[in-house]
Nucleic acid binder design. Structure first.
Lengths: 180, 180
DNA sequence: ACCTGAACACCGTTCAAGT
DNA sequence: ACCTGAACACCGTTCAAGT
């Protein structure tokens, strides 16, 4: 049954807005993608966005969640490969959304919503690799090793390392974890 | 001789603006520190800032340069210490300006000025440690090791790691470079 | 329930005008 | 040379009003 003026489910309209927001956030960044532009791309006036999302950061987090879900799903396909290859896969997966990554870090301070998402994101990433690390890395330094890997991968993404440099960096990270 | 209405050198007035901008950028971040607030803190109207600085990013970069210069000067005092201690020193030095670090990464895409500064910053940081690394790390993987160290330190800063975690992370980084 | 027009309090920046 | 008032084109967000 039609739920709004365009004979769409509320969820369908929400998804349309998310799609518009997603491509605009990617193309123009958080600041460049104004609520006005996003609304226009979704065929709405800016204020209507607030019927679907509390504020711009909630919309941003919803877009970030979209990519996070996709990432977690896709990990299954590489979960059995060597760590170095998984790291390269992760960098390559995040590379297209590197503007979003930078935005998350910039807005963590200003938006509790983004801060919460950022904290969850890191937990999920750690969960993704924790099992693979425990057997090899001694307990005392384990958290430090995980942090090094996490930050190095984030850095590779935000600094847009080329394929060779990425490959070397991921090898270096994996090699470190293999040595006891 | 007096050069403006307040009987100050242009440089002195510029420094006043920089001081105001610096503390506001630190306290409220790039977005929170509006040109209006900065101007008010310096006893001026917003538009007058454009007499001294081309735009907000030029002012921001000038503030960032202030801290970079201080950082490079202070490094002399720890240059002879073990690498792990130098890394801890670097994290501790950057910790107070972690909002600026996040802002740099967020604005690299939008401002050529910030992009240039960011590129220079990394060159300076690499120069600071390059000599200490060359003897220990083999040539092929050297760039990757430097990248890991750089990104891990940046991550420790932006994610505000506590003292213990920072210490462990820096030990881990230094230990890696010591092993051949 | 869904959407809009109009308004609010900002923002960075420009420019003619003052001293 | 230095500084301002006034204006411009935005911005995110709110709210009363429409359907």
């Amino acid at each position: 049954m039609p739920r709004n003026r365009q004979d769409q489910t509320k969820q369908a309209k929400r998804d349309e807005i998310l799609a518009a927001a997603s491509s605009l956030f990617l193309a123009e960044g958080y600041d460049g993608a104004s609520m006005g532009k996003i609304a226009a791309a979704a065929g709405l006036t800016p204020n209507t966005l607030y019927w679907y999302f509390g504020d711009k950061d909630e919309l941003f987090v919803a877009v970030a969640d979209l990519y996070l879900d996709r990432l977690l799903q896709n990990h299954g396909a590489v979960a059995e490969k060597p760590l170095a290859q998984q790291f390269v896969w992760l960098v390559d997966s995040l590379r297209p959304v590197r503007h979003l990554v930078a935005t998350v870090h910039a807005r963590v301070t200003r938006s509790p919503r983004v801060e919460q998402w950022h904290s969850d994101f890191h937990k999920q990433m750690e969960a993704l690799f924790e099992d693979q690390l425990t057997t090899k890395v001694p307990g005392a330094q384990r958290a430090a090793e995980v942090a090094v890997v996490t930050f190095a991968i984030e850095g590779a993404v935000t600094h847009d390392l080329d394929a060779d440099a990425t490959s070397n960096l991921c090898d270096s990270l994996a090699q470190r974890l293999a040595a006891e």
